[in-house]
Amino acid sequence: MLVDILSWVCLMLGSLLGIIGGIGLHRFPDFYTRLHAAGTTDTLCAALFLLGLGLQIGVALASLKLLLIFLFIYLTSPTASHSLANAAMIGGLKPVLGK
């Protein structure tokens, strides 16, 4: 019962975080700031989702697979974000700077 509530909370928080990331993708003014909204809320969103599913599945091989999926996302997401930002900078895209 407690596990059910916990996984429910994890899944809902993850969903909320995903939608907020999607909204940020539209509210922010330029590419670099959008990258913050998109590329980086991804990690926690995925972590929450996979944790919620793992609690639901319980101790099994499947939850280890979920852990593996999380590890891949955890390792590749910053690399992809960095190479996107780096490519945009080399490509000559100027960031909008605030005060």
Binding site: L35, H36, T40, P78, T79, S81, H82, A85, M89
Partner: peptide, 12 residues
């Protein structure tokens, strides 16, 4: 990599 991973900062 850690700087990129924490939201709000990206290493260029």
């Amino acid at each position: 990599n850690s700087i990129t991973l924490t939201p709000g900062t990206v290493t260029l």
